[in-house]
Design a protein around this nucleic acid. Structure first.
Lengths: 351, 351
DNA sequence: ACTTGTAATGATACCGATAACATGCTTGAT
DNA sequence: ATCAAGCATGTTATCGGTATCATTACAAGT
């Protein structure tokens, strides 16, 4: 470890510059309050001592940490990484730092993280999802800071929300496949009986099956296997299960593009023609979905925008200069978009 | 924003339990120091008040924040996301929180982030890469905390290092392609004249060309185009450039699997057979590389392990109970592994 | 000339915890 | 019975900033 020279404090700077601590603080926080000559003297002292202000002390005193807690299922999903990056980007000009935690799709882990994060006294909490444990809900309610639930549209938002309806995504997917004339329709999702659950994926499946039922079709081809997070292998595996159960399946909706890509590659390996023999669609509009040959039909979510919009909303809410009674829209729906590409085609061509 | 009930402090807890603040602090930090009966009383008071200790105040007082700064090029690269997750995982039992910053491959941005992060008084810094601005180097040296440079093997480490030799990776790639009998060999990388530079990718290219030269071949087919980070499109684009320059190219090394996948898909679109017409390999062993048809030959890096090893090293160094003169190995080389899959084959079969 | 306003700076009192040392009370060895 | 050692707990003094109010000096208005 490099040798530690005792770090200079604001007091050291103030002595060297011949002013009070308060003046140094002002130079840093609001330079216009200080005359040019003293400001220059202070700046020189800061330079000479390589002074770096201690934000820990500053936070304690001002009761503002400039930390934003972001709780996501996992970092290794490019959608959520995009959201984190968008959020960080939006908050950076105001010098906020993200505290990122990931739950691995476990609600108890989410609760644990919220408890740990609250001890850091963040200025706001951003959390993916609208379902939380009772204790987690209570902690967030009592925290007295802005809360933003993202990536879904909550029935009863704790505070703010930025997202889209996963249920409607599922419905849109089913309507697309029905409109193409398919009747033997399946879906690929993950199990809901483990400790890791993809609740938003399940909402999409729920929306999906609701349309199937309305069309007089059953949901027996909706596969739930493997635990969240899904992987390419998950797509290959569940496709195999589905094909075993129904070799005549015509169209499939995967709850994630990752599964869809895995399923597509498995089709290549098995010699199943997509979309000739089988239509396939995913969700999320991951880069890889567009690159595949053929490119995968999907439902596009602007994940980065969810982060950016959340950041902008927080900047407004947290701005001290804004009237304290100002309350922005509680819920923002960023919507979604069906992107028809090469993996879905009308029924009845081949086979 | 939910209504704010004034948060309970340690003092409130101590009064309710009829003890001093110090006893409450002990119950939280080292319960064994307190008798069972008082401990129970204190716990009950904590429960009743829903007390959450303020780590900001605790950090100021103890001069330990339990923050670890992690500086990575981008979060939206699954390799780096894996590293971040591995690091977070390793540090979590000891209750460390990651402060993640991303540089977008810009050294000036890295410097800015380091400056900002130091104000948060992290207990250690983890930074991807071994090249930094002069000011960044000085700041890290003066910080008096452990520094770990990761994802490469530094000539002159600031402190600790956990990584592998990118230069050797490039050499291994070239040797593999040469061994297959190829002579017209190219590579796909990114430009080095912008403000965003992939220095580790460039090291791989340098190692790659060093072998080409030793074999009496030129480096005129080493393409550097587009700015870091590379994308699927980057692979497609640079493949096009390379084919235009040398339609007879036999084998290609892409500095990243992302580029390799993009190039492979472009081959599919152009009807170029891989590996029949063209051998192709990448770097990083991304999930998607294994899924592609054919699966992509690559060089495997255990990105998560880099994070985990870094975390374990830091836990040792930061452990107060360890003898203060204890110094673990300065540099850990996690190595790499060539994974031969379906996209590389001996020369001279077709064409 | 006197009041009033404003710009620049200083003095004081915390913010909510922990480190370090001090104290009182048992307990066991001699 | 005496005293050192050790356990359980308390007291005091920071940690390094910012909020708030006070002070000083000088310019402008009447």
């Amino acid at each position: 470890m490099p040798p530690s020279s005792p770090k200079a404090t604001m007091h050291d700077v103030s002595r060297l510059a011949g002013v009070s601590k308060m003046t140094v603080s002002r130079v840093l926080a609001d330079p216009d309050l200080v005359s040019e000559s003293t400001r220059n003297r202070v700046m020189k002292a800061i330079e000479q001592l390589s002074y770096v202000p201690d934000r820990v002390a500053g936070s304690l005193s001002s009761r503002r940490t400039n930390f934003i807690t972001a709780i996501l299922p996992t970092l290794t999903n490019s959608n959520f990484a995009d959201t984190a990056q968008g959020l960080a980007e939006a908050m950076r000009p105001a010098d906020y730092q993200l505290l990122i935690g990931y739950t691995m799709y476990r609600l108890e882990e989410e609760e644990r993280i919220i408890r740990a994060m609250l001890a850091r006294r963040p200025d706001a909490i951003v959390v993916a999802g609208t379902t939380h444990t009772k204790a987690a809900n209570e902690m967030m309610l009592r925290a007295g800071i802005p809360i933003v639930e993202i990536w879904d549209t909550p029935q009863h938002p704790i505070d703010h929300a930025v997202g889209f309806s996963n249920y409607e995504v599922g419905r849109a997917a089913a309507l697309h496949l029905l409109a193409l004339g398919h009747r033997r329709i399946g879906a690929l999702g993950s199990r809901m009986d483990g400790d890791a659950k993809d609740l938003r994926g399940e909402s999409r499946l729920a929306g999906f099956t609701s349309v199937l039922r309305e069309a007089g079709l059953g949901d027996e081809l909706v596969i739930r296997e493997g635990l969240a997070p899904v992987s390419y292998d998950h797509g290959a595996l569940t496709l195999g299960i589905l094909l075993e159960r129904a070799p005549d399946v015509q169209a499939i909706f995967a709850v994630s593009d990752i599964s869809a890509v895995g399923a597509l590659m498995e089709c290549h390996r098995r010699g199943i023609k997509v979309p000739g023999d089988l239509s396939l669609m995913g969700f999320g509009d991951f880069d890889i979905a567009r690159q595949c040959v053929p490119a995968i039909t999907t439902i596009r979510i602007d994940a980065e925008q969810i982060g950016r919009r959340t950041g902008e909303l927080l900047l407004q809410v947290l701005d001290r200069s804004t009237a304290p009674d100002y309350t922005p829209a509680a819920a923002v729906n960023v919507g979604f978009e069906l992107v028809t590409r090469g993996t879905t085609a009308p029924a009845g061509k081949s086979r």
